[in-house]
């Protein structure tokens, strides 16, 4: 069974149709990059996968959950699907450690000691062990984003979604975040990532999906897709990102 199965999904905001029949399958352990111009529907697609956006038609299945919009079904889905946003969205009133331990403790009933050990483990994974008791505002953007990734990982998700997680960062800070993601990918995590980092997509993602006008315009193994675009739209897009 595939980890993520998206079938002919249509999504509109009012009269504006943003996803016009999107289908996509991701197998467990695969890393898939989603690229495309601004407004092509990349974020919307990603947010549909964990039910943050409601679709009008089609079907989405994620690690055994059919995306269904009841509170209970959504919570069950979200225990298995992590998402990291462009703007980190850490909880500013909690320390790094508390940010990470909160959800496992209250949503999964993980005992305190176990949650703490788990938090220390994921924090080490993103290279921030010494920041356990620090508040988010005292961290750099890159560090905050790594904490956000750790916070998601602490839920032990089966799939991770990343929406332009380096776009808000100063260029010198993107590397540390990309490195964490690369290690996650190597560790076998199933990942879907919307990104503007073409080199990262090309070197880390098994497959890349090019979205255009609300559709999967072209997709294929990353290396091949970037070196031999089949559609003029992708060719133009790739060219525009090289500048």
């Amino acid at each position: 069974m595939s980890a993520v199965h998206i079938e002919n999904v249509h999504k509109s905001f009012g009269k504006l149709e943003v996803l016009k029949g999107v289908s996509l399958t991701v197998e467990a352990g695969q890393v898939v990059a989603i690229i495309g111009r601004s407004g092509s529907g990349k974020s919307t697609l990603l947010r549909c996968i964990n039910g943050l956006e409601t679709i009008q038609s089609g079907r989405i299945e994620v690690v055994g959950h059919t995306v269904t919009y009841t509170d209970e079904k959504l919570r069950a889905l979200r225990k298995d699907v992590g998402i990291v946003f462009q703007s980190y969205n850490l909880f500013p009133h909690l320390t790094v450690g508390q940010n990470i331990m909160l959800a496992p403790r209250i949503t999964k009933g993980v005992p305190k000691e176990e949650a703490r050990a788990q938090a220390e483990k994921v924090l080490a994974q993103v290279g921030l062990s010494e920041k356990f008791d620090v508040y988010p505002d005292n961290l750099s953007g890159g560090q905050q984003q790594r904490v956000a990734i750790a916070r998601s990982l602490a839920m032990q998700p089966k799939v991770m979604l990343f929406d332009e997680v380096t776009s808000a960062l100063d260029p010198e800070l993107t590397g540390e975040v990309l490195l964490v993601m690369e290690e996650l990918a190597r560790g076998g995590m199933t990942m879907l990532l919307v990104t503007h980092e073409m080199n990262f997509a090309r070197s880390v993602a098994d497959f890349t999906v090019f979205m255009h006008q609300g559709k999967v315009w072209e997709m294929g193994p990353s290396e091949e897709l970037f070196s031999h675009p089949k559609t003029p739209e992708l060719a133009a897009f790739v060219k525009s990102t090289l500048k």
Binding site: N50, D71, N89, A103, I106, T107, M155
Partner: peptide
């Protein structure tokens, strides 16, 4: 975004 982040972590509305 605080609502989105917390609901993405499977919290109930009360939580």
């Amino acid at each position: 975004q605080q609502w989105e982040a917390s609901s993405s972590l499977a919290m109930t509305r009360g939580q």
